[in-house]
């Protein structure tokens, strides 16, 4: 065995109940998909924390880089017109 790292790392996302978004809760090590699913279940839903699980192999995640923070995210800071609160509604307008 080249490395004995107790299997590759899988990131775990849990949906707490139907309709809710999946949230990252942590990671597990596992050697195959089935094992990853069982390990995530055993580790992250011991206290009925969820009803559904997503798993992604950590190496398959594409992540933005902190260096790109400025170029990626700051331009949207000066586009307040994308937010509803930007607009002035006439006094007394309802359901809008």
């Amino acid at each position: 065995m080249s490395t004995d790292n107790q299997g590759p790392v899988w990131e775990v996302f849990i949906q707490t109940k139907a309709g809710k978004p999946y949230r990252h809760v942590g990671a597990v090590h596992a050697y195959d998909k089935e094992m990853a699913m069982e390990n995530a279940r055993d580790l992250y839903t011991r206290r009925s924390e969820g009803t559904a699980i997503w798993l992604v192999k950590a190496e398959d995640i594409v992540a933005s880089q902190p260096e790109d923070m400025g170029a990626f995210f700051e331009p949207s800071n000066d586009k307040p017109y994308r937010h509803p609160t930007f607009y002035v509604m006439p006094e007394g307008a309802k359901h809008i």
Partner: peptide, 16 residues
């Protein structure tokens, strides 16, 4: 546990 991990790894690779 080394042989168990080796087995799981070998099997995992076959599955992939």
């Amino acid at each position: 546990g080394a042989w168990v991990r080796a087995a799981a790894e070998a099997y995992g690779k076959k599955q992939m």
